[in-house]
Structure formats: structure tokens, C-alpha cells
Design a binder for these strands. Structure first.
Length: 833
RNA sequence: GCCGGUGUGGUGGAAUUGGUAGACACAGGGGACUUAAAAUCCCCCGGUAGCGAUACUGUACCGGUUCGAGUCCGGUCACCGGCACCA
């Protein structure tokens, strides 16, 4: 019989669907396991090969956990609000809801074809009103607890989407979604105070099991730094507060810089003799985008203007120092003002050199500070020219000066974070309406909770307006409403929430997806608790992963959910790349290579690149499934390489995996009757150990290699039905359809996915004899076979008795011998005296 | 510039964390079966020298520790990812 994967896969998918095989129950007495993958954005292009990697991995884990006896929640849903759908709708004059519906149908079809063991009863969709009702509800809780506020501020404005972007959505000065330039624009925006959770988000990392690079990246993004705020008096009498992480260098502060936006600049207008020059600089800085202001940061030529007519007084020595404005000082960090210590800060040094400011060394231990700034903050530096700090190390000087500043009432310790509040408004249609009402009398009034969900109204055109308002602003009968507070006439907020809103809590909804009374019942939240294992992409580390931790911490603080941290464990997969059609390695002659480099530049030097339509290297999962079957697709994507690293798709290797499944299939007809055979016992028990451990460690490629080895053994030694049964159990998480079919054909009873995971006996993973290498002087010279239980003395004796070794030992004296049990013997000789 | 990661055959990648480098595959070569091809099955496959057993050499580069280093330490180079005037 031939391995007809198309028929087999369809058969089992239908059966799993009809029998609801993977539905799980809340409150089941077995131990629970909540495995989570990032739910997809249902784009028009359908599933791409990037999706099956994390999904198959977690499916393998979920299937194994079920066989291990867990009550497994392995859900899926759709993160369906967002710009691409809206843009498609605008272009093709279809309602975004209709586009979304079609895309979800296509995704659902594709996900079913891959045989994932999702609990489809719990499928969620962020655009469905009974889902976004709770997204809006959570926003109202933020508002009620003072974490949502509206403010006018310069924001990132995408010139093409006509929409505000969060800092996280701006990549290298352009819009992450459409690639259009991003400029700064003053707008009134809803904000979420994620900065109030900066410390909790750092501390929480210590309580969870995330891979290190995720923790590091989040810590860096939050960017905590400890320093001091110090007040400098200006000659106008004003107090200028600066933030510094190096209060120890205060005696070296020879000038001060404030950001062009600093309030004193305007306030001092009448006192500045060079106001015109100052005003010109301020205006120019305001026009630049954040990107222009910060690009090429360190190398960039510093610019600035000295404020003529006002000076600052260094509080530690009473010296009058000049004040500059410069755009290298950011208004949005610290106090928007710094004390400049050119001797010990590279940026201040570059500025001082250009503007001829004085450079005074206050920490010795480096090179000449007139030639280079000395920035070491460790014990290598000793304080000089610093009065009472002289002679101290930097490490001791920091607390000493901080204490002094506090006693004098001119400074104190201060912690700052790079993290900024989350811009939560989007001037777009396809998002959750923000449930707030503006009343001229009462101000912003939250919609009463019993009026949720606030439905997204039907609208004729989804185009954003030219003045940057949301399309909703044109629907006057929706906008005009009554104030829930005073009953007077009022207007609704017309901005919608960003794409990240719905995904910030979706894992909670899976616990109790049909609940109309709460986002999830207390029982469901208590039962499922934290997500046990969340796998997703590194690109979400500072976006979705941080946002959802914030929301979860907040919901915990207000008593809605039992855990502060949503995810107990977070792992991450590498990307799948395609072959580069323009790679220089594809051609033979130097001439051809040079032609490729001339045409494509550095692109031509990479063997692998991101898949893209224009390069024609996109792999469509539908095609792979049609040609090789879902089981081969699954197996290959797990075999492709180290799960955490990027990998390149290879059609040839897919065929290799198909060949392996063919071999498994063909073996079924060659089986001998009987239980596990003694000749295969060692190999089977070793394989069970290896595959079990490797799945837990996400070393799927070596787990599959072990299964391939086992099949090779079965071919050489022959296999019984008992041996084969073990193989099918272990292979079933990777190739579930094939294994179900073979399980049924061989009459093992029931379904393989419902069987217990095989156990191994440690004693049966050890061979009776061991082949050991014998090293002389660190080099392998011979191999011997010894009894597994042999003592070190016996092993050394056997090694010395080996003819080659005996020959080498002639005239020599054994100085030392090292035995690594079951592996090798290392012998060290010296000539006999 | 700072932070994190990677560097192993023609290719994807293994190596129980200091113990026989190249598992398992792909590609390639040879053989069996076949009228033939495909499929399948078996064998070979880092480099150099040799008919051969074998010897030497080999994990980006230089040096060190060790009986023993892909793995640890010091330095260098290249590439990838993140952050980037955050005081």
C-alpha cells in the first residue's frame, strides 16, 4: 500500500474536528498546561512559512504534554484590527469587516491543513464586539485608575498612513508598516502611563523564565539609570534642575546645556541679547523629526547656540558658567537640561571642543582629557580638583556627593527610565473605539460600563481625513451624544485604539472565551493561572510582550486576575529565510560575480534573504502540503536547524524528510509479530530518553535525528510490532496524521494522540559493553571494548594490554591515568629513569 | 559607539557543556534490482600523502590554561540582531 498523505491527512483532520479531540475543560483535575503561540494577523496573503515554525513547535509540545497526562489548553485566535486590512478596504471598496472575515476563513483552512491540535471552540477574534467589549473595559479601568490621560504632545506622524505611531512602531525614521517618512507633529493624544510600571516591568523579569536575550532587550528598552538631580541657580534667579548619572564630576561642569524646547528659553526671551539667533535655532530643531535629530548620533557634528545674557552658577564652587541650547539634549528625558562635564563625557567633550569651552579634569587615571574624554566609572579613576572629594574613587565619590547635595538641599538621588508613555490613539477606522465622551461642562467622561461594547459604526469612507482626524469624526450622528454625567450634549472620542490593544490580554480570554459577564470568570482565571509556555518572535519583545506584561500587571493590581506576570516561560524562534536568487555563490565566473555585485550591491553577498514576492523566493505552505503533505512540512520545519536560529528554506531537504516518512510507512509491512525485541531494546530506550528530553528543550532537530537513527536500526535489525509501536508514539507529535493511520492499521487500539507517552528504563539505555578510546599524551592511539561495569583499574589494565599501547609503553613508566567512564582512558608516560 | 548573538565539510547542521569533531540529513560518487527510467535497498564521502593498513592536518585568526579545547581564559577579525546624543 502506498503512503497516500492527502487522503490520510484529510481523514484525521476531519475526525479530530468532528470529535473535538483537542477541546479541553476548565477545572479538569489533571495538572494543567497552557501552551501559547502568538495569534496571527489574518493578512490577505494567507499563512507564510514563518507561521508553521512556532506553531508546529508548540503543537509538538502540546501533543506531548497531553500524552504526559496534562489537561492542555492550546488555543488560537486572530488579531484582526489593523492598517493593512483597512488600506485594502479603502483600495477595493469593501468593508474591513468583510475582508477580515474572508482572511480568517482562509487562515483557518490553512491552520486545519497543518493538523494543529488547537482547541477551536476557544478561537477568539479581536474585532468581534463581544471581544473588544473587554478591551474597552480594560481601557476604562486604566482611565479610572489614572493611567489613561489625554495630552497634546509632539508625536510620530506617518505621512502616508496619516496616523500617529508609537515610538516602537518607528524604525529608522520610517513607518514600520508602510515605510513612509515619519515626522513630528503636535497632536492631542490618549496616552497610557506605562512609565508608572517601569520598575515593576524590570522587577517582574526576575520572577519568570524568559530566554536571556528577551530579558536583556526589555531591560535595555526600559533603560533604568540611577543618578542625581541637581539644582543650578541661574543669574535670573531661576532654578535649573539637571539630571546626571555622574554627580561625582560636578566640579568639572564647565557649562550647561538645555534642550531647545526648555521652558526657560522662552521665559528668558527679554534677557537674551542674541534672541534672534536662539529663536532661529529653536525653530529649526522643532522642524526636524526625532530621527533627524538623533541619526548618526555619536559621530554627528554638534550644533548649538550660547544664551547671551544669562548664566548658571555651579552650586559646588559658585563658578558662573555659560548656558547653551543644543538639540543633543532631549526634552523628553530627565529634566531636559544637563550639566556638561567635557572631561568625562564624550558628547560634552565634542561640544566643548567645537565651542571652545573649558575642559577640567576631575577624575584622574585616563589619558590627557584635552585629547579625549575619560569616561570610566569604575575603580580606575581617582577624584582630583574636587575639593572634599579628592582622593576618592568614583565609586565612593558618587554616594559622598549625593549625600552632600541632599544635606545642602540642592540635589537628591534620582532614577530615570528611557521608557516613555504609550501613545494610545490612532486616527483610523479599523480599531476599537475609545469609549470616552467629551463634555464642555464635565470634561472627559468615561462611558458607563453597561454601555459597552461601544460599537464601531458603519461608515461610507474609511479614508483618514486630511486634517488628520479619524474617519469616525465625519459620522456626526455617532459623534454627537449626551454626556453620561450631566446629560448635556457631548461628543464622542473619534480616535481608535492601536493594533496592540487587543493582543495585550487575549491569552486571558482563551480561558473563558464566551463569558458575557467578565473578561473571564474568576474560576477560569484561577484554574489556568499563568501561561506556562509562550513562544513567539523576537520582534515583539519591546512591543506586544512589554505591553501585555504591563496590562497584566495592572489587571493584577486592581484585583481582576491572580498573577502579576502573564507568562511563566518565554521562548523564541528564528526566522525562516529564502534562498537569495542573486547570491554570488550561485555563479561560477568572476565576471558573473562582479556583475551581481554591481547590480545588487551587498545584497549579492548573502546566501539567504528574507522571502519576498519581488525576489520570487516565497514558499507557500499550501504548495508544500499539496506536494509532500502536512506531516512532511511539519517534520521538515522542525528538522531545519536550531529552533532559535534563523534558517534557510531548502526544497531538497524537504524531500529528505518525505523520504524518511516513506521509510516509516514501508516498515509497517515488514514487521515481525511480538512485543519489544531484545535486539532493539537498547536503541528504543535510548531514543525515548533522547526524544523526551529534546522536545522539552526545543531541540527538535536532534529529536528527529534520533528517530531517523532508530528507523535505520529497524531496517538493519528488523523490528517487531512492539518496537514499531514505540516509534509511532514518539513520532506522533511531529507527524500526527501518518502515525494515527499506522496506529490504526496495526490495530494498537484507540488513537495515538490519546496514548500515554512512552517511558524509558535508565538501566536499559546503557550497553553491556563500552567501546573506549585510549589516549597517550592526549591523542587517541587505540580503541578497546570493556565491560560496562569494569572498574577504573581493570580498564587501565585492559588499555595497557592492548598491543599498540603495549608497544608505545615499552621503556616507559606510567605517570598518570585518567578514566572517563564509558568514554576514554588517557595515559601519560615518561621515559624510565 | 553600547548591549546581545554567531563563526564547524560542497550544503543544513550534531557534539551528553572539558573527553574519540563531523551524529542525522541534503547534494555528490559507486553498486544491486530493472529492457530502461523513477522509486527502493546497500556502500563511500573534511583535507593532504599512500594501492593499503596508516600518518599528518583540520572547528574564523593569534596566544594561553589542561593529560586532553569546537567547548574555558586573553586578544583580533567578520557577520547577524537590538538600542543609539537617554546625560
Amino acid at each position: 500500500m502506498k503512503y497516500d498523505f492527502t487522503t490520510i491527512e484529510k481523514k484525521w483532520q476531519t475526525r479530530w474536528k468532528d470529535e473535538n479531540t483537542f477541546a479541553c475543560k476548565n477545572g479538569d483535575p489533571r495538572p494543567k498546561f497552557f501552551g501559547l503561540v502568538e495569534f496571527p494577523y489574518p493578512s490577505g496573503a494567507g499563512l507564510h512559512v514563518g507561521h508553521p515554525r512556532p506553531y508546529t513547535a508548540m503543537d509538538v509540545i502540546a501533543r506531548k504534554k497531553r500524552m504526559d497526562g496534562y489537561n492542555v489548553l492550546f488555543p488560537i485566535g486572530y488579531d484582526a484590527f489593523g492598517l493593512p486590512t483597512e488600506n485594502f478596504a479603502i483600495k477595493n471598496h469593501v468593508h474591513p469587516a468583510e475582508v477580515t472575515k474572508q482572511n480568517i476563513e482562509n487562515f483557518t483552512r490553512q491552520l486545519h491543513m497543518l493538523g494543529y491540535s488547537f482547541d477551536w471552540d476557544r478561537c477568539v477574534n479581536t474585532t468581534s464586539p463581544n471581544y473588544y467589549k473587554w478591551t474597552q473595559w480594560i481601557f476604562l479601568q486604566h482611565y479610572k485608575h489614572g493611567l489613561a490621560y489625554k495630552t497634546t504632545m509632539p508625536v510620530n506622524w506617518c505621512t502616508s498612513c496619516k496616523c500617529v505611531l508609537a515610538n516602537e512602531e518607528v524604525v529608522e525614521g520610517v513607518c514600520e508598516r508602510c515605510g513612509a517618512p515619519v515626522v513630528r507633529k503636535e497632536k492631542s493624544q490618549w496616552m497610557l502611563k506605562i512609565t508608572a510600571y517601569a520598575q515593576k516591568l524590570i522587577d517582574g523579569l526576575d520572577t519568570v523564565d524568559f530566554i536571556d536575550r528577551v530579558k536583556t532587550q526589555q531591560r535595555n528598552w526600559i533603560g533604568r539609570s540611577t543618578g542625581a538631580e541637581v539644582t543650578f541657580k541661574a543669574t535670573t534667579g531661576d532654578d535649573i534642575v539637571v539630571f546626571t548619572t555622574r554627580p561625582d564630576t560636578l566640579f568639572g561642569a564647565t557649562y550647561m546645556v538645555v534642550s531647545p524646547e526648555h521652558r526657560f528659553v522662552k521665559e528668558w526671551k527679554d534677557k537674551l541679547s542674541n534672541w534672534d539667533e536662539v529663536a532661529t535655532y529653536v525653530e529649526a530643531a522643532g522642524r526636524k523629526s526625532d530621527f533627524e535629530r538623533t541619526e548618526l548620533s555619536a559621530d554627528k557634528e554638534k550644533t548649538g547656540v550660547m544664551l547671551q545674557g544669562v548664566r548658571a552658577i555651579n552650586p559646588v564652587n559658585g563658578r558662573e558658567i555659560p548656558i547653551f541650547i543644543s538639540d543633543y539634549v532631549l526634552a523628553s528625558y530627565g529634566t531636559g537640561a544637563i550639566m556638561a562635564v567635557p572631561a568625562h563625557d564624550t558628547r560634552d567633550w565634542a561640544f566643548a571642543k567645537k565651542f571652545g569651552c573649558e575642559i577640567i579634569e576631575v577624575v584622574s587615571g585616563g589619558e590627557d582629557v584635552q585629547k579625549e574624554a575619560f569616561t570610566a566609572k569604575d575603580d580606575t579613576g581617582i577624584m582630583v580638583n574636587s575639593d572634599f572629594l579628592d582622593g576618592m574613587t568614583v565609586k565612593d565619590a558618587i554616594p559622598a556627593i549625593t549625600k552632600w547635595l541632599e544635606e545642602k538641599g540642592i540635589g537628591h538621588e534620582q532614577v530615570n527610565y528611557k521608557l516613555r508613555d504609550w501613545v494610545f490613539s490612532r486616527q483610523r477606522y479599523w480599531g476599537e473605539p475609545i469609549p470616552m465622551v467629551w463634555c464642555d461642562k464635565c470634561g472627559w467622561v468615561p462611558l458607563p460600563e453597561d454601555q459597552l461594547p461601544l460599537l464601531l459604526p458603519a461608515v461610507k469612507s474609511y479614508e483618514p481625513t486630511d486634517d488628520g482626524e479619524s474617519p469616525l469624526s465625519k459620522i456626526t450622528d455617532w459623534v454627537n451624544t449626551t454626556c453620561p454625567c450631566c446629560g448635556g450634549s457631548a461628543k464622542r472620542e473619534t480616535d481608535t485604539m492601536p493594533q496592540w490593544a487587543g493582543s495585550s490580554w487575549y491569552f486571558l480570554r482563551y480561558m473563558d472565551p464566551h463569558n458575557n459577564q467578565a473578561l473571564a470568570s474568576k474560576e477560569a482565571l484561577d484554574y489556568w493561572g499563568q501561561v506556562d509556555w509562550y513562544n513567539g518572535g523576537m520582534e515583539h519583545t519591546t512591543l506586544h510582550l512589554l505591553y501585555s506584561r504591563f496590562w497584566n500587571n495592572f489587571l493584577h493590581d486592581i484585583g481582576v486576575i491572580p498573577h502579576a506576570e502573564p507568562y511563566a516561560k518565554r521562548t523564541s524562534h528564528g526566522m525562516i529565510l529564502g534562498k537569495n536568487p542573486h547570491y554570488v555563490g550561485n555563479v561560477d565566473t568572476e565576471k558573473e560575480k562582479q556583475a551581481l555585485i554591481d547590480k545588487y550591491g551587498s545584497q549579492a553577498l548573502r546566501p539567504s534573504v528574507k522571502m519576498s514576492k519581488s525576489l520570487g523566493n516565497v514558499v507557500n505552505p499550501d504548495d508544500v502540503i499539496r506536494d509532500y503533505g502536512a506531516d512532511t512540512m511539519r517534520l521538515y520545519i522542525m528538522f531545519i536547524g536550531d529552533f532559535e536560529k534563523t534558517a534557510t528554506w531548502s526544497d531538497e531537504s524537504v524531500r529528505g524528510c518525505k523520504k524518511f516518512l516513506d521509510r516509516v510507512w514501508n516498515l509497517s509491512e515488514k514487521l515481525k509479530e511480538g512485543d519489544c525485541s531484545p535486539e532493539n531494546e537498547l536503541a528504543v530506550h535510548r531514543a525515548i530518553k533522547k526524544v523526551s528530553d529534546d522536545i522539552e528543550a526545543m531541540k527538535f532537530n536532534t529529536a528527529i535525528a534520533a528517530l531517523m537513527s532508530l528507523v535505520n536500526d529497524f531496517y538493519t535489525k528488523g523490528a517487531t510490532k512492539g518496537d514499531y509501536k514505540q516509534l509511532l508514539l514518539m513520532l506522533s507529535p511531529f507527524a500526527p496524521h501518518l502515525c494515527e493511520e499506522l496506529w490504526e492499521i496495526n490495530g494498537y487500539g484507540g488513537q495515538v494522540c490519546l496514548q500515554p507517552w512512552p517511558e524509558y528504563d535508565e538501566s536499559k539505555t546503557v550497553a553491556a559493553t563500552a567501546k573506549m578510546a585510549v589516549q597517550v599524551g592526549g591523542k587517541v592511539k587505540a580503541n578497546i571494548v570493556v565491560d560496562a561495569g569494569a572498574s577504573d583499574e581493570e580498564v587501565v589494565a585492559a588499555a595497557l594490554a592492548e598491543p599498540k599501547i603495549a608497544k608505545l609503553a615499552e621503556g616507559m613508566e606510567l605517570v598518570k591515568s585518567i578514566v572517563v567512564k564509558g568514554k576514554l582512558i588517557s595515559l601519560i608516560f615518561k621515559p624510565k629513569a
